[in-house]
């Protein structure tokens, strides 16, 4: 497998991203390593080829934003909006992730080994997110579709104004947001959880130690008696 290395201390980010936007034929099957990322913003955004990218350190905002197909590994921590609006592929943060991890993402898998900040999975639209640690408040706010798996604890207002996304939590939940409720773990949900734990390197974690949350669907159409919940 061919490896291409860019040193962000020597090569401008623009050149790196431009290379990562090359035709699929140029990139397919390659591993691109980005050294000395230094927390730079917008590393490896808009990828659309079957390429492995390793960010060898910490990334700033929007790392792997809008990812399609590619497999991006961040060896350090990631700033706000990692894998935002991801469509497909896989993004793996080995450290911590800041706010809005996986925001509005429509597909693919986002794995965060450490904790995630506020609003993890906000407005998610089909992505799967597995957080090895805990998530901050307002996570899965207005989450529309997909699955958020939290091995640690969750902050306040988890799943507020939730639509059809599923949330699996193993630890404590500070509070649930409006219209988010505990659901019985049916077989379909359990299988999804088992699959995601396996894909994210947590195959040894007991799926029965998780609580499933979903939408109570009381806010789907306005009713005056629910006005206080909006």
């Amino acid at each position: 497998m061919e490896t291409v290395t860019f040193d962000l201390e020597k090569t401008p980010l623009r050149e790196v991203n431009q290379y990562l936007h090359s035709d699929a034929a140029e990139l397919d099957g390659k591993t691109v390593t980005i050294t000395n990322p230094g927390g730079a913003h917008n590393i490896a955004v808009g990828l659309k080829a079957d390429v492995d990218v390793v960010i060898d350190g910490h990334a700033g905002y929007y790392a792997a934003g809008m990812n399609q197909v590619a497999n991006v590994v961040i060896e350090g921590s990631a700033g706000t909006g990692v894998a935002e609006n991801m469509m497909s592929g896989r993004v793996h943060v080995k450290g911590f992730a800041s706010n809005a991890a996986g925001a509005t993402a429509q597909g693919g898998l986002l794995v965060i080994d450490g904790d995630a900040g506020l609003r993890c999975g906000i407005s998610m639209k089909g992505v799967d997110i597995v957080v090895g640690g805990s998530v901050g408040s307002f996570s899965a706010f207005m989450a529309q579709a997909g699955n958020l798996v939290i091995l640690g604890d969750a902050g306040e207002a988890l799943g507020d104004s939730l639509y059809e996304a599923r949330i699996f939590v193993r630890g404590n939940i500070q509070s649930l947001g409006a219209d988010c409720e505990v659901k019985p773990m049916d077989e379909e949900a359990r299988q999804i959880l088992v699959k995601l734990l396996k894909e994210s390197g947590h195959a040894d974690v007991d799926p029965d130690s998780f609580t499933l949350l979903g939408s109570a669907r009381t806010l789907y159409n306005f009713h005056v008696d629910n006005a206080g919940a909006y």
Binding site: H41, N42, V45, G60, Y61, Y62, G65, T80, G81, E84, N99, A100, A103, T104, Q106, R119, I122, S123, K125, G126, F141, M142, Q144, A145, S161, Y163, E164, Y220, N221, F222
Partner: peptide
């Protein structure tokens, strides 16, 4: 990506940035 027939509420703020400094990074993205 919503169920048919639900009232669709669009957020008033962007989900992954808040102030003008963030906006600069978002535009760059």
């Amino acid at each position: 990506c919503l169920p048919k027939g639900v009232d669709q509420r669009s957020a008033c703020r962007h989900p992954d940035w808040t102030g003008p400094d963030d906006l600069e990074i978002k535009i760059a993205e």
